[in-house]
Design a protein around this nucleic acid. Structure first.
Length: 812
DNA sequence: ACCTACCGGGG
DNA sequence: GTGTACGGTAGGT
């Protein structure tokens, strides 16, 4: 009997001789790939019978048959459980095989004696991880014997298996890959028709390109006789490299499905799974690709679902994402040349090989960069990396709750059906409170904000789907909301509030540790815990959630509005001037008060706050500007700029960050804000704008600065209204360039009469100064700064040198 | 304004 | 495989 420890990486199950066996692929402490088999886990689901109904015998009698497999309930156990945090009697029905669960549930569902059937849709391996309390990627103890099994790694049949510690797997072997395919850019991608031309692989001390045509190149290219050989070789290389992680960029939806389609055409078996299974492509609108035993990391999916919030970019192309995260772009090639170059066997293919390998390298680096975040999510949520990679935040919360409530004997509610979801969506939430600013230039601003406002409200007011409107506490702990009556139990702790309190305290501990020493993994963990806590409010109000709770979500918002009002009202009472407030923050002006008064104010507020709630003194700003909305007098929400005491200017919500503005307009807006805040008046900003206008008129602004970039969203012919960017795209097409949906169009508006679209030219078509200065002044520069200047009483005419000098405003 | 259909990423 | 997305928005009505 061998005893050892290993880190689980990937799980699957198989039914052998009518019995389900869990296969846990992982790595031992000395770095060996192995598979641990566990046949001790039984599938089950819950039936909640109507009061007094005795249906045990009736349940054990049912059976079903499908695909020559018979399904039945092996035994039924009565259990004292909870449902929505209330005690109930439940029947736990064990079945012979996992597939029996959904099949049998359909039979039982509409029995009169049954209240509900639950937990029939929790996949077997996920159930296993939850019930066995095993956390993937962390150290697990195993006792067992080596058994013969048709696998690429040694198999051990477990006698016992149990979680040992939080120690996390290190030094995983990662292999990134990328394919290039034949086909006309802009046309539908057709894997059944067009061949794979080359495949690049990239790992630590490993890079290779495989292809089936010979061309001149500096890279390590292996040339094979045919496409089928390339696919075969890809498989061999993966087998030889033995990666723990195989990474691609949108490989769920493109690379793997493409490879599989091509392999099928040549009747090749893509059995790269460690159990000799083929790549499994999930059907449905959104594809997935799973490789047994190897963690398939689709970098794109992870970014789009779990990382997007921390990124500025709103397009998730490999190019944009690499630039932001790694500071590195893709190699700029003309993709429309790939297929012609292939047909001609031109040496241009050398550049495409380089491009191919570079993409694989970027994917590899992104993978290294994001793995700490993925792994921390795996450890917090407790599901395997493959699953976590494909989940969004509401699912993280749901699977986290499922794991946490296991020990509380809480039966999970079922996911809502379509109609139920629609009904939930119809109930709108009231929203957060915004105190609209009066446009102006202000000095001595203090910003307060509630630390984790929504999570701390949930924890402090015991908000949970099972504590709402309890029979024991009516009238106490009542939410400040108009539309509904909602109060929350003051006697028994709800699971949502205790889970969230746990997340908050765990994060505080990590923060303390981080103060001692900075650490990538700890930072990732802190971020994960924060994201999880912040997602709870959204989860409770999410129509597809198992633990959806409208009263909870509405109450959280009600309390949030009340707590922010409290700060606003008391600040006014204390003689501060309230400038602006949004959701969880309040901006005030000191007037005749001091910073110390503001600090004392925060302390006073905190004395009255319940539980873990806390108002923070976020910072002091010597100056700030709030501008008006397009429409009228009131100040725009989420659009302001502040300058701190180190002269750093922080701009929020202005167009400076928007893509479809010319650089000159963005530069000018930023410079105007900065000058006004730094110099505490508008004089220098006015001079600056006048100078830019003069430069524009005299053609001194470089072409790049007057270029406007817009992304094409569909084919050129599909546009009914030919806007300037469409006109530019037409010019590009007429020059033989291929443009289609997603193409970035860069254009300049040039001098001349008539419509804008007739004056559009491409940047390389024009000479210095050959742009329409009036257009740029009227449609780019002025709109960007007009509302900023109106705050300080500067009229548009004055900037353009027409009007008379008005009285300039300054700080108040 | 509201509703529905389609798109994203990849070549 | 004890499940199948989802959130945004363009375009039509």
């Amino acid at each position: 009997m061998a005893k050892f420890q290993f880190y689980p990486l990937d799980l699957t199950y198989k039914v052998v001789n009518g019995k389900p066996i869990i296969y846990i692929f992982g790595k031992t402490t000395d770095g060996q790939q192995i598979c641990v088999l566990d046949d001790s886990f039984e599938p089950y689901f819950y039936v909640i019978p109507k009061a007094g109904a005795d249906i045990k015998d009736k349940l054990t009698a049912i059976s079903a048959e499908k695909d020559n497999e018979s399904y039945h309930i092996t035994r039924v156990e009565s259990e004292k459980m909870k449902f929505k945090e209330k005690e109930i009697d439940a029947l736990r029905c064990f079945t012979n095989v996992p597939r029996a669960v959904p099949a049998l549930k359909d039979i039982i569902y509409d029995w009169d004696s049954v209240e509900s059937v639950n937990e029939y849709d929790i996949r077997f391996v996920r159930r296993y991880l939850i019930d066995k309390n095993i956390t993937p990627l962390t150290l697990v103890n195993v006792e067992g014997d080596i058994v013969p099994e048709k696998l690429k790694v040694p198999a051990i049949k477990a006698k016992s298996i149990e979680q040992f510690s939080e120690d996390t797997v290190k030094n995983l072997k990662i292999l990134a890959f990328d394919i290039e395919t034949y086909g006309e850019v802009g046309r539908r991608i057709a894997p059944e028709k067009n061949p794979i031309l080359m495949i690049a692989l990239y790992g630590e001390n490993f890079k290779k390109i495989i292809t089936w045509k010979k061309f001149k190149t500096e890279e390590d290219v292996e040339v094979l006789p045919s496409e089928a050989d390339v696919i075969q070789r890809f498989q061999e290389l993966v087998d030889e490299y033995k990666p723990d992680v195989i990474a691609g960029y949108f490989s769920d939806g493109f690379d793997f499905p493409y490879i599989r389609t091509r392999a099928k055409k040549y009747k090749l078996k893509m059995d790269i799974g460690l159990d000799y299974s083929e790549i499994r492509i999930g059907r449905g609108a959104q594809k997935t690709a799973q490789v047994t035993g190897i963690m398939h990391f689709d970098v794109f999916k992870f970014i789009k679902r779990a990382v997007y919030k921390t990124l500025k970019t709103d397009v998730y192309t490999l190019d944009a994402v690499s630039e932001e995260i790694l500071g590195e772009k893709k190699i700029d090639v003309d993709m429309s040349r790939l297929s012609p170059a292939w047909d001609e066997t031109s040496d241009e293919l050398g550049l495409f090989a380089k491009y191919n390998l570079h993409d694989a390298r970027l994917t590899y680096k992104l993978c290294l960069n994001l793995i700490p975040n993925l792994f921390e999510l795996v450890k917090v949520v407790g599901q395997m990396p493959y699953s976590i990679n494909r989940m969004s935040f509401s699912q993280f919360v749901e699977w986290y709750i499922l794991r946490q409530v296991k020990s509380l004997k809480e039966i999970a509610p079922n996911r809502p059906g379509y109609n139920n979801q629609m009904a939930r969506q119809a109930k709108r939430l009231k929203g957060a409170f915004v105190f609209e600013p009066t446009p102006g230039l202000y000095k001595d601003i203090i910003v307060f904000d509630y630390k984790s406002l929504y999570p701390t409200i949930i924890a402090s007011h015991n908000i949970s789907p099972g504590t709402v409107n309890c029979s024991c506490c009516e009238g106490k702990n009542k939410a400040p909301v108009d539309m509904i009556d909602a109060w929350f139990c003051t006697k028994k702790r709800g699971f949502a509030s205790s889970i969230i309190e746990d997340l908050i305290t765990r994060r505080s501990r990590i923060k303390e540790m981080l103060k001692e020493k900075d650490d990538v993994l700890l930072n990732a963990r802190s971020q994960t815990l924060k994201d999880m806590a912040n997602s709870f409010y959204g989860y409770l109000g999410f129509s597809a959630a198992r633990w959806y709770c409208y009263e909870c979500a509405e109450s959280i918002l009600g309390w949030a509005r009340q707590y922010i009002h409290k700060v606003i009202d008391q600040a006014k009472e204390q003689g501060f001037d309230v400038l602006y407030s949004d959701t969880d923050s309040v901006f005030i002006r000191l007037k005749d008060k001091t910073k110390e008064d503001a600090v004392k104010f925060v302390e006073k507020i905190n004395m009255d706050l319940p539980g873990v709630m806390e108002l923070e003194y976020q910072g002091f700003y010597p100056g700030g500007i709030f501008v008006s909305t397009k429409a009228g007098e009131s100040g725009a929400k989420k659009k302001y700029a502040l300058i701190d005491d180190k002269n750093n200017v922080k701009i929020t919500g202005f167009e400076t960050v928007r893509r479809n503005w010319s650089f000159i307009a963005k530069d000018v807006q930023k410079e105007v804000i900065t000058r006004i805040l730094k110099e505490q008046n508008a004089d220098s900003a006015v001079d600056y704008v006048k100078k830019v206008i003069a430069d524009l008129k005299e053609g001194r602004i470089p072409v790049e600065k007057v270029s406007i970039r817009t992304q094409l969203s569909k084919d050129i012919d599909e546009y009914d209204n030919v806007g300037p960017h469409v006109a530019a795209a037409q010019r590009m097409k007429s020059k033989g360039l291929v443009v289609g949906p997603g193409s970035m169009i860069t254009y300049v508006v040039t001098k001349g009469k008539g419509r804008i679209r007739d004056k559009v030219k491409l940047p390389d078509e024009i000479k210095q100064g050959d742009y329409d200065a009036e257009y740029y002044i009227d449609n780019q520069i002025i709109p960007g700064v007009e509302r900023i200047f109106s705050v300080v009483n500067v009229k548009k005419e004055e900037l353009m040198g027409k009007g008379s000098q008005s009285k300039l405003g300054s700080f108040i």
